[in-house]
């Protein structure tokens, strides 16, 4: 009886110490899609800001163009903010529930960067 108890105990300890392997590929593929949309939006924001500056610097009578650009900027800002919320929620979930500790989290973000740089952000979902 004591032998069985000991075996059960060993099994329990083993199961408790077992840690599910992190499926980085799955996490990254899922997250890369939404992150790519954010990257595209960020690039657009900076481009629009550059454009706005160049218009403002070159000319003071391009009011219509400036106004329409400002409307476009406002729209992209709103889209970016909504997307930022989604990313934050998803990222918090991954960092808190799917990964444990600084090493795994860093591994995830490092691999994510490599993946996106390698594959680019031209997926149909990208805005």
């Amino acid at each position: 009886m004591n032998k069985y108890k000991f075996i059960y105990l060993l099994i329990i300890i083993h199961l408790a110490s077992c840690k599910e392997q992190v499926d980085y590929d799955k996490l990254i593929t899922e997250f890369a899609e939404i992150q790519c949309r954010a990257i595209v939006l960020k690039d657009k924001r900076f481009q629009m800001a550059d454009h706005l500056r160049s218009i403002e610097i070159d000319s003071i009578d391009k009011k219509k163009e400036i106004d329409s650009l400002k409307i476009a900027i406002s729209e992209i800002k709103n889209t970016s903010l909504v997307l930022a919320d989604s990313i934050k929620v998803k990222l918090d979930d991954i960092l808190t529930n799917k990964l444990s500790g600084h090493d795994e989290q860093k591994e995830f973000t490092d691999r994510l960067a490599v993946y996106i740089k390698a594959n680019g952000c031209s997926s149909p979902q990208a805005e």
Partner: peptide, 17 residues
């Protein structure tokens, strides 16, 4: 202190450590 700043991912940046 070793840390990775995740706060800019939401704005389309990669994390920086």
């Amino acid at each position: 202190y070793s840390f990775t700043d995740y706060s800019q991912l939401q704005y389309g940046f990669f994390a920086r450590s």
